[in-house]
Design a protein around this nucleic acid. Sequence first.
DNA 1: TTATTATTTAGAAAATTATCTAATTATTTA
DNA 2: TAAATAATTAGATAATTTTCTAAATAATAA
Lengths: 92, 92
Amino acid sequence: MKMNLVYKALADPTRRDILNLLKNKNLTAGEIADHFRISKPSISHHLNLLKQADLVHSEKEGQYIYYSINTTVLQDVLAWLLSLQEGKEKTE
Amino acid sequence: MKMNLVYKALADPTRRDILNLLKNKNLTAGEIADHFRISKPSISHHLNLLKQADLVHSEKEGQYIYYSINTTVLQDVLAWLLSLQEGKEKTE
DNA sequence: TTATTATTTAGAAAATTATCTAATTATTTA
DNA sequence: TAAATAATTAGATAATTTTCTAAATAATAA
């Protein structure tokens, strides 16, 4: 897994908002787009970046595409953040 | 605190490497720059972004400037990541 | 089959970011 | 004081990212 894609994906506020939306509920691309003022193609692009980072999964259902969050990759981010905090205990 | 600056700061691999370097040891700008192939002004720029995000602190000592990591802002990132994970427990 | 709806892909423009060299500022040493 | 060292600032360029409209694809409904 290319962790750089994960950090890059998390760097954009729109994408973080999308993850917040998917936190409790799986949504279609259209439902997601409805929450934002930017165009559907732009949202589609953000969803694609989230997918490349493996932060979301998509599943086609008829003419709809449902998106769901995948938090497994966040484990590595979490671990890294914790490691940064622990490191300081020695010198302080 | 503008959290967007934090996520943006963490999105660059060079800046993440800088944080890794500062994890155990405070270093001068020059010592940090020596770890990378990119120019000193570029490193200076990255340090500035990390500082704006409040992820590092700088202190002048004579002609040197010492940089140290500040992990307090990471609490919020950590909390958000955990909230994303928790949200899914309901639906799964 | 034709029209409508949902979504993505293509291609381009605008904005942001990363990087460089040259110049500047501040400090220390000879 | 003059030279050397540490670091930043300035200004430019290249690369990446965000966003848009228009067009394409796929599925459903009339």
